[in-house]
Every structure is written in C-alpha cells, then in structure tokens.
C-alpha cells in the first residue's frame, strides 16, 4: 500500500500516512475549507490499508502521531472517524498506538486528548506532553 502524503497548507495539516512502515502522522492546524474533501480520501486509504492482507508481521505496531495546535469542529469529526477505525482494527488484534502530543499550557488540546482517550479499550492512546511549540 502506497504512502499518502499531503504537505501542510494555510488551513490544512501536514499529513503523512506511511503505510509500508506503519507510521502515520498529522501535524499542524486543521480548518480546511471542506473537511470532507480533505479527510475523505485519507479515511478511504486508511480503511483500505486496515482491510488489506498485510505484508508486515502482525507484531509490528501501527503508530499514529498527532501534533495538532488547532482543529475546527468538522476536523474533530474526521479525527473521531480515524480513531474509530483504529480502535476497531485494534479490537481485531492489530497492535495500535496513538500518541496525542500537546503543549503543557494548551488546555484545549489536553482536554480533547483526554476526551478522545476515553473511547479506546484495545488501542493504546497516550497523552504526550511536549515543550516545543506545535504551531503549524
């Protein structure tokens, strides 16, 4: 499965879904003009990847790193969809880890992280405090 890469724009995040290495990243700010148009193909690719026969050994974990400084409500909806897909895959035995990076002084991002974390039972969801500025 090919790597999916989107360079950051003014209102959309840097997105790098390196499927061959099971390494997924979303970084920056997310309030695109049309969240469905931006995240639609991403969700589709992730779904295809999670459903396809896997060339990597099953013990190799899938890692999603999120370093977001701001996202709007339609992006939150898309993130929720990504998390639900990963949790489902984890419940079926795929080792999955999600790292939610947030600045210690960013109340909203910490609260969102704590909120999202409550939905995970099979995937590991980690809140990672980082001192560096996450501004996109």
């Amino acid at each position: 499965m090919e790597r999916l890469h989107r360079a950051a724009t003014e209102r959309s995040p840097h997105l790098d879904f390196d499927f061959p290495n099971r390494c997924l990243r979303i970084e920056g700010e997310s309030y695109p003009e049309d969240a469905a148009a931006f995240y639609g193909p991403v969700l589709k690719a992730l779904e295809t990847f999670l459903c396809s026969p896997d060339p990597l050994p099953p013990e190799s974990p899938l890692v999603l790193d999120l370093r977001l400084s701001y996202f709007n409500s339609s992006s939150a909806k898309a993130l929720m969809n990504i998390f639900q897909m990963l949790e489902l895959a984890a419940s079926r035995g795929l080792s999955t880890r999600i790292n939610w990076h947030y600045h210690p002084e960013d109340d909203a991002m910490l609260e969102f992280g704590e909120d999202f974390r409550e939905d995970f039972r099979f995937a590991d969801f980690h809140l990672c405090e980082v001192e560096t500025d996450l501004a996109g």
Binding site: A35, A36, N72, S73, S74, A76, K77, M80, D119
Partner: peptide, 18 residues
C-alpha cells in the same frame, strides 16, 4: 462527535456546540 453525520449537515451542528 460520535454520532454519524446528518446527511444535509456540513458540520454546523457540532460547530454551534464548539
């Protein structure tokens, strides 16, 4: 956030809550 999107919505209802 956990509900499936309404067919005619472009995210407005959750935007108002935000």
């Amino acid at each position: 956030l956990r509900e499936p999107s309404e067919a005619d919505s472009r995210g407005g209802s959750i935007g108002l809550i935000e």
